[in-house]
Design a protein around this nucleic acid. Structure first.
Lengths: 182, 182
DNA sequence: GGATCTATCTATAAATC
DNA sequence: TGATTTATAGATAGATC
């Protein structure tokens, strides 16, 4: 990362030189983040708070950072239900519980992670940071997942239908089922 | 930021190339952060949770993130349901809802995290945070979940088969299904 | 799909303004 | 000091294994 001379990677004792270096590299870093974001479609933003500036340097812009936040609020909603049957309530509750656990775990982990990061940064004299996040991927994954589920449901339904036809019964899938003990 | 050819700064559509690019640049970015920190005595840390890697890239220490992954993998299993029967459509809807919840929760968590980080940075003298959604973890969770669903379907199928064999075609008629209001 | 290898492009240390 | 210039170290796109 030098020119004219190969600089050894160590604290720059000269105040002026250090500050100059910081300015240049901060700029370079922000550029890199911006490039990564563009090239790989990673929704990112960065904040660099150095000991030399009075206010933090951000990318893409103060507003851009807000825009990142805004994106979170505008995510697609899923549709809704039609008919349902008794036994299923139990299952749905199960599912709900499982998801709840996942939810809580995720939240907890995230909180811990952030605290860790915060602690690290606050324990030093200065600090600098960068924040990246990706929404698109989450959305995509969920969509993929839903597709899979629907596909499986469909297959299952077909299979059931065939099965019942073979046995001469009215389609079980269309009919009631046994009670379930939760 | 190229070699061999001057790449235009735009989204890389080729999946492989984009991934490769991400890997390289992520590495470069982390190195830059590390250098800035050393040269200018800036207390910095970085976490990159990218959609392409199985584990997050961190600097300076991998401990923080590894802990998160460890926690994720030791997530509690949901209990096995016994017998259950369902109306396939209903189940699929419930799943959709559950997923929606997860989505919303995630969104909310993210929002909170980001706000927290932002607030800290804007109000304090120091602050720094970097955060990227980890797709792998979400995928893992979803896979676990899908497995459960699949297993339940299988059980249901088995149960139905037995039922039809034992009771014949008319059996289902005496076990009406209750409608349920979601 | 990742690791390695260049040829090139980019970032930047030092000089200069 | 900060901006500009310049020569060189470093990053990396594309190729290859």
């Amino acid at each position: 990362m030098m020119a004219r001379k190969k600089v050894k990677l160590a604290y720059i004792t000269n105040d002026g030189a250090r500050k100059a270096c910081f300015r240049k590299r901060k700029k370079g870093l922000l550029k890199k983040v911006s490039e990564l974001s563009t090239l790989c479609d990673v929704n990112a933003c960065a904040i660099i708070y150095g000991p030399y500036d009075t206010e933090p340097e951000v990318w893409p812009s103060p507003d851009g950072v807000q825009r990142v936040l805004a994106q979170f609020k505008s995510m697609p909603e899923t549709e809704q239900s039609k008919k349902m049957f008794d036994q299923v309530t139990y299952l749905s509750q199960r599912i709900g519980k499982a998801q709840e656990q996942v939810k809580n775990q995720t939240k907890e982990n995230r909180e811990k992670d952030v605290k860790h990061v915060m602690f690290q940064s606050l324990s030093g004299k200065s600090l600098q940071g960068l924040m990246l996040m990706d929404l698109q991927d989450l959305t995509w994954t969920i969509d993929q997942y839903l597709e899979q589920v629907h596909s499986r449901m469909k297959n299952f339904k077909e299979a059931l239908k065939n099965e019942n036809q073979e046995q001469g019964a009215t389609a079980a899938a269309d009919r009631p089922m046994d009670n379930v003990t939760p």
